[in-house]
């Protein structure tokens, strides 16, 4: 389904890694010679940090090369500049634009009536989706938007509906309707990033319901930061119970052989005994976490959407991790063509 979509909107509860997933998705979509535009709308410069480059100006620029010769471009949309762009769409507002700015109209539009800010941001993204070059080909094969968090995304995307209702005629009305046509078409897919924890999964379910109520196209769920299972509950209980002595011996032996260079006495049996309890405690927390994730996974499955899983990167996300995530999304079929 998402293979049809050209505008991928990525939302998710704060802290779930939506910016990272949006970036990985852009890389994945661009793989194999495509062009993807990664759009940031919240002014955080998260994309620049992720790709380890300087802050992005308000212009589209190439930010990464995707596997197989693709390109990822990035744009951090600045609401004030977007408003001037927007006004230029209708008029040559040279002096009038400056007058508006002087009067505080731009401040008004972008801060006091922040709904207008959302109009501008979604409008700019849709413009990039529709933009064609001289030969009539789309300039970007895909546009990926790092969108506002789950709680706000429906309202954010739907703002043009509201505007079209407020301004019932005129160019603002027409522009708002054109944007909504793109957003409500199968060209658009709204994805949610979640963790396998109760609150983010619940928020995802709520977000999906809201999107559907607004008639916006729901895409997929990306489950992020999944813990790779190492030991299951029975194994941990066995190691803590009737097999504790042999596990201790195995640990002691292994640690003794690594003694060189470190504190050599840590391998002695007495020390190992003291280590086993905290190690088992950590293992129990691991299995507790796995159980939590199993419940979360079942809840995600009940959402009835395609779901993709990405493992937690223990060292935090660096550029290498980002490419691994992109490859994983392709492998699991999120880009439709892998």
């Amino acid at each position: 389904m998402s293979s049809m979509s050209r505008l991928h909107v990525v939302s998710g509860k704060g802290g779930t890694g939506k910016t990272t997933v949006a970036a990985a998705l852009a890389l994945a979509l661009a793989s194999g010679g495509k062009r993807a535009l990664l759009v940031e709308v919240e002014g955080r410069q998260g994309i620049a940090q992720l790709f380890e480059t300087e802050a992005l100006p308000y212009e589209e620029r190439k930010i990464a090369v995707a596997p197989g010769g693709g390109e990822v471009h990035a744009l951090a949309i600045d609401a004030e500049r977007a408003l001037l762009d927007y006004l230029h769409m209708f008029y040559k507002l040279g002096s009038a634009g400056r007058a508006l700015k002087k009067l505080g109209a731009i401040d008004f539009a972008t801060t006091i009536a922040p709904g207008l800010r959302d109009v501008l941001l979604t409008g700019k993204a849709c413009e990039a989706v529709r933009r064609k070059d001289r030969t009539g080909r789309y300039v970007y094969d895909y546009v990926v938007m790092d969108a506002p968090p789950t709680g706000r995304v429906t309202r954010f995307l739907n703002v043009n509906d509201e505007v079209a209702g407020l301004a019932r005629i005129g160019p603002i009305h027409n522009q708002a309707q054109a944007v909504m046509r793109v957003l409500k078409s199968p060209e658009t897919a709204v994805h949610f990033v979640t963790l396998l924890e109760e609150m983010p999964v619940q928020e995802t379910a709520d977000g999906i319901a809201e999107l559907r109520a607004a008639g916006l196209p729901v895409g997929a769920v990306v489950v992020n930061m999944v813990r790779p299972p190492v030991l299951d509950e029975a194994a941990v209980e066995a190691a803590a119970g009737h097999r504790r002595a042999e596990v201790e011996r195995a640990l002691a032996g292994a640690l003794e052989r690594t003694g060189a260079g470190g504190s050599a006495d840590a391998g002695r049996t007495g020390r190992v005994e003291a280590l086993v309890a905290p190690l088992l405690e950590e293992a129990r927390e691991h299995t507790e976490r796995l159980a939590l994730e199993r419940r979360g996974r079942a809840d995600v499955a009940r959402l009835g959407l395609p779901a993709y899983e990405l493992h937690l990167l223990g060292d935090g996300v660096d550029l290498a991790g980002l490419y691994r995530m992109a490859r994983e999304l392709r492998r699991q079929g999120m880009t439709g063509t892998a």
Binding site: V247, L251, L280
Partner: peptide
């Protein structure tokens, strides 16, 4: 040994 390895890895 495999259980021990699991504990160490975690």
């Amino acid at each position: 040994a495999r259980l021990a390895a699991g504990l160490l890895r975690l």
